[in-house]
């Protein structure tokens, strides 16, 4: 559905994305995991053709068979109206507080799909029903502040479905929600992707959410994909030191049991030392050099190629090339 090859996004002197290659097929669900500054949101924007004006973008983006690299804004706008949709972290910020929910969702149906008012209304009710909004008739007349955060996110998903997208990009869609509400939203996204044969790109810092929502995963650090492959395999046995560190640092995931050790001291969490350096100070070689627990002498200078591993996995780390 969408394929990126060697896509880079640069601001003066710093690269927010470096040579990102990935593809998502129809009906496939790809997770993009990373911390602040990993470039995951910029990647989402690049897929929407919405990188900031100040940025320079290089590489190939092929959307539904059409090469979009260097395409003018007009072409992207048409794609966004027909093929690609995006939902965000904060549903309240994405809804006009003065507009009834019904009006909000009907607007693109009237403008882009050319439906009449009654047809648009009927379609809106269908969409509300599809995304699991109870009592859709009543919701049409309500305002964003009158419904819960989870319901607002559902309205936004309904809004994104108005263009019948073949690709849905969800940037931290569950971060602002309570855990059990987040679970329901993830279930909904999975169901929609399956039923509509829609490609889903699920961007999140939350490993647990990505684990549930996706089949394949791409782990990002410093603007690069450092590891990728089938979600269960990557999370069960990560090969890149960063992925390992990330999984270890998250309580309740790495397999360690909380509590106290033999001499009564509370068990510490394994950590990744330091913090993500600013883009402009990232090492030229492996982006993770300097924080890596198993760093080799040439890591900071020489850039590791992504090493292919069995069952469609890859990781960009020199250790794998050394035959370990």
């Amino acid at each position: 559905m969408i394929a990126l090859s060697d896509v880079s996004v640069g601001f003066d002197g710093a690269r927010a994305l470096r040579d990102v290659t990935l593809s998502v097929a129809r009906g496939e669900r790809l997770g993009i995991v990373g911390e602040s500054g990993s470039g995951k949101s910029m990647l989402g924007l690049a897929m929407m053709g919405m990188v900031p004006d100040a940025a320079r973008i290089a590489g190939e983006i092929v959307l539904d068979g059409t090469a979009m690299s260097g395409a003018p804004e007009r072409v992207w706008r048409r794609a966004r109206a027909r093929k690609v949709a995006m939902i965000f972290q904060e549903p309240m910020a994405a809804l006009n507080p003065l507009q009834r929910l019904g009006e909000t969702v009907m607007e693109p149906l009237l403008v882009h799909q050319g439906l009449g008012r009654s047809a648009a209304r009927a379609r809106t009710l269908e969409l509300f029903d599809e995304v699991g909004i109870p009592d859709p008739e009543a919701r049409l007349r309500q305002y964003p502040h009158e419904i819960s955060g989870g319901q607002r996110q559902r309205v936004l998903i309904a809004l994104s479905l108005t263009c019948d997208p073949a690709l849905l990009i969800a940037d931290e869609p569950t971060t602002a929600l309570d855990a059990h509400v987040a679970l329901r939203i993830i279930e909904l996204l999975v169901r929609l992707a399956d039923k509509r044969r829609m490609a889903l790109v699920f961007i999140s810092h939350d490993l647990a959410a990505v684990a549930r929502a996706t089949e394949r995963i791409a782990v990002m650090y410093g603007g690069e994909i450092v590891e990728g492959g089938p979600t269960p395999a990557v999370l069960a046995a990560p090969r890149h030191p960063y992925t390992r560190g990330l999984l270890g640092a998250r309580p309740g995931i790495g397999g360690q049991t909380p509590g106290r050790d033999a001499d009564g001291r509370r068990k510490r969490l394994p950590t990744i030392p330091g913090s993500v350096p600013p883009l402009s100070l990232l090492p030229a070689g492996c982006r993770f050099a300097g924080r890596c627990a198993v760093e080799l002498s040439h890591c900071a200078a020489v850039r590791p190629e992504p090493y292919r591993l069995p069952d469609g996995r890859f990781a960009a780390c020199h250790l794998l090339g050394a035959g370990t």
Partner: peptide, 29 residues
Amino acid sequence: DVSVQAQILNLLMDLQEELGLAMVFISHD
């Protein structure tokens, strides 16, 4: 972020042992 979160949690554990702090730790997680 997850990696920073682990550092801060460890720091709180260190301080608790060092200073004998009692703690009320409130979270959704």
